[in-house]
Amino acid sequence: MTEPSIWTNPEGWKAIGAALAVGITAIATALVQREIGSAAIGAIIENEALFGKALILTVIPEAIVIFGLVVALIIA
């Protein structure tokens, strides 16, 4: 019996699709959080009272990667 090829196995393609969904959205989140995070740190240094707001704004882009994760779970 021959080993099934990765190119013809639908499970393989699904796994690749799921990985891309999580991977690309994680990179997008990271890029956005870099900007927001550094601005948040700058704002907190000048005014400590902004910590709560800064934290919320910093985690908002997490939604992007969560959407990616959901898509990945649906695919897989």
Binding site: S38, A43, N47
Partner: peptide
């Protein structure tokens, strides 16, 4: 250059 950080600080100083 990290303009996000710098701008946040400068805006804070301007406040």
């Amino acid at each position: 250059a990290n303009y996000s950080y710098l701008n946040a600080r400068v805006k804070g100083m301007k406040g």
